[in-house]
């Protein structure tokens, strides 16, 4: 993720674009983890990602995929979405590091 771009968008209150950046990054990280075990996998939807993660990934990652999918189906305000996305991203980064 280009942190400068993210920061710029955040300070300019472009929350929706920040959500999209984080969402893409979270998906990329999870997709990469799945691909390590199943090279045939390719991402289509977050629901699919969640299902695949149940077969392959650790419980913590499954929970992250689950929360990501829930956010997609819940019609929430941008601030709430962003806060939740940042939490998910943070947890994922912590785990990866």
């Amino acid at each position: 993720m280009n942190k400068e771009v993210f920061k710029y968008k955040l300070t300019n209150k472009k929350y929706n674009e920040c959500i999209d950046i984080l969402r893409k990054d979270i998906i990329n990280i999870l997709e990469k983890k799945i691909k390590e075990k199943d090279t045939f996998f390719s991402y289509t939807t977050t629901m699919d990602l969640y299902n695949k993660s149940k077969e392959i990934l650790s419980e913590k990652d499954v929970k992250i995929a689950y929360r990501l999918y829930l956010l997609d189906i819940m019609d929430e305000i941008d601030e709430y979405m962003l806060d939740e996305m940042m939490q998910i991203y943070h947890e994922l980064q912590e785990k990866t590091n």
């Binding site: 977050t46 956010l71 997609d72």
Partner: peptide, 12 residues
């Protein structure tokens, strides 16, 4: 309609 929800649907 919610954009993310609809995009997911279209992708599927």
């Amino acid at each position: 309609i919610n954009k993310r929800d609809f995009t997911e649907f279209i992708l599927a």
